[in-house]
């Protein structure tokens, strides 16, 4: 068990603030630029870094993240290269939790146990695999936990009282609350509804809760951070990568700074 996720949320709790979780797709727009982007996130204020494993058919993602995955694949990104990228990032940053996020088939093709061992060795702390619900826990969740990798679960507005214990049963690291019924980068969440949902969830778990899907701007992120332990921003950053330009890396890091300032200050002092 790396313990980095637990340590990070413990520190946030001790400091009385919420965290910022960022998502970028590995290899987007190419591996070298992606390394520069991901390598600068912690300094820009990201508390936890989600790294997308590109897949041709990301069925829960909106157009921005689909396009990011296709750019990454076009640039030659593969799962082994994503793991190499994490290994290089880890060599320079021993503290920031890294979570790999994606779909099951590339892992299935790589070999699920071989993948888990490689992920631990590369310095990965947790996994989010969108198309592995608790009904399929034997595939990856249970062997991941045996190896000390957190298996982060998604709860959604459709997760009712009967479903929630099933979702939480083998969850670890943190709970990712998907704030809307929909795909990434779509409608904006309503902070009040998120607050109500978290009030429903909290009594069932001690895990920290991060909230994502549809959060784009610092003010929105701050709203969410008043309720959640962390706010997740993905599509808004990926859109800046898509826009490109000579100052793209700085633009992404600048946006992360603005989001981090808003999230970290959200609860006042």
């Amino acid at each position: 068990m790396s313990g980095r996720i637990e340590a990070r949320f413990a520190r946030l709790r001790a400091e009385g603030r919420a965290g910022l979780v960022t998502y970028l797709c590995a290899g987007d727009p190419d591996l070298a630029t992606s390394e520069a982007l991901l390598g600068g996130l912690a300094a820009a204020g990201a508390d936890l870094v989600e790294i997308g494993m590109p897949f041709t058919d990301p069925m829960a993602d909106g157009p921005a993240i689909q396009a990011a995955a296709l750019r990454a694949l076009q640039a030659g990104t593969t799962l082994p290269r994503t793991l190499d990228l994490v290994r290089r990032l880890r060599a320079r940053d021993g503290d920031t939790p890294f979570v790999l996020m994606g779909y099951y088939n590339p892992i299935h093709a790589f070999g699920r146990l071989r993948f888990l061992d490689a992920a631990v060795e590369a310095g990965v702390d947790g996994l989010i695999v969108v198309d592995l619900p608790p009904e399929e826990d034997e595939e990856l969740c249970l062997p991941a936990r045996e190896r000390g990798l957190a298996f982060i679960r998604l709860a959604t507005p459709t997760t009712d009282a009967a479903r929630l214990p099933v979702v939480l049963r083998n969850a670890s690291g943190f709970l990712y609350y998907v704030s809307i019924t929909g795909i990434t980068g779509a409608a904006a969440p309503v902070a009040q509804q998120v607050g109500d949902a978290l009030a429903r969830i909290r009594p069932h778990t001690d895990l920290p809760v991060a909230v994502g899907f549809g959060i784009r701007e610092p003010a929105q992120a701050a709203e969410i951070a008043r309720h959640a332990d962390a706010a997740v921003v993905g599509s808004a950053l990926v859109d800046l990568v898509a826009r490109g330009g000579a100052d793209m890396v700085a633009a992404v890091h600048g946006k992360v700074q603005a989001l981090a300032a808003a999230v970290h200050g959200a609860r006042g002092r």
Binding site: M59, A60, D131, L132, P133, A155, T156
Partner: peptide, 12 residues
């Protein structure tokens, strides 16, 4: 076979 879908769809 199986049920390899996003959590949003599982209750349905």
């Amino acid at each position: 076979g199986g049920r390899f879908v996003a959590e949003t769809l599982m209750p349905l």
